[in-house]
Computed example of a mutant assay.
Amino acid sequence: MTFLMHWSFKTGYHEIAAKKFMATGAPFPSCKSWKRFHAPGSVEGWILVEADDASACYEHAAEWAECLDWEVTPVLSDEEAGPLIAKVYA
């Protein structure tokens, strides 16, 4: 399953989170794959995650919850969503 995780820094936590990120690389070992994207200025970003279930996202978000606010959304590709929408409008 694919999840889009949107993160943003909590007020006053930019430096703490940046130092933690540089020291650890923010590993995400409990998922199949992930890709991280940073907005210009790096005050927010997104992680596109492939995982068997949402627990991988929950664990990662919990590790960073002190510094970051999160929104996690399950998402579908065109290939996955197409047949579903076709059922509705067929």
Rank of each mutant, 00 (worst) to 15 (best):
A81F: 12
P40F: 14
T11H: 13
P83G: 04
D53M: 01
D78V: 15
S33C: 03
A56H: 03
E59W: 05
E50P: 04
V72Q: 05
E80L: 06
C31I: 10
A86G: 06
E59L: 09
F28I: 04
V49W: 01
P29C: 02
A51L: 05
P74I: 02
V72C: 12
A90I: 11
S42L: 13
L84D: 08
G82L: 10
L4N: 02
Y89F: 14
S30T: 15
A54M: 12
A90E: 15
F28Y: 15
K19E: 15
E79T: 07
E59G: 00
H38I: 11
A81Y: 13
W64V: 03
A17Q: 10
A39N: 08
V43R: 07
E15M: 09
S42C: 10
M5G: 01
W70G: 00
E71K: 15
T11G: 00
L4S: 04
I16L: 10
F21Y: 11
W7P: 01
L68T: 11
G41F: 01
M1N: 07
A90R: 08
E79K: 09
L84W: 10
S30L: 10
M1C: 07
P83C: 04
A54S: 10
K32S: 07
S33G: 04
S77E: 14
Y58V: 15
E50L: 06
F3T: 04
L76M: 14
A39V: 15
Y89Q: 09
K35A: 04
F3A: 02
A65K: 08
P74M: 05
A39C: 12
K20A: 08
K19A: 12
A56E: 02
K32H: 14
E66G: 03
S55P: 00
A17F: 09
A39I: 13
L4D: 03
A65G: 04
T24Q: 05
M1R: 05
K10G: 01
W46I: 03
S42R: 07
C31W: 06
W46S: 00
W46Q: 00
P74C: 05
Y58M: 07
I16T: 12
C67E: 11
K10S: 05
A90C: 05
K87A: 09
A61V: 07
G25M: 10
D52S: 03
W34R: 08
A61Y: 07
T11C: 04
F21H: 08
T24H: 09
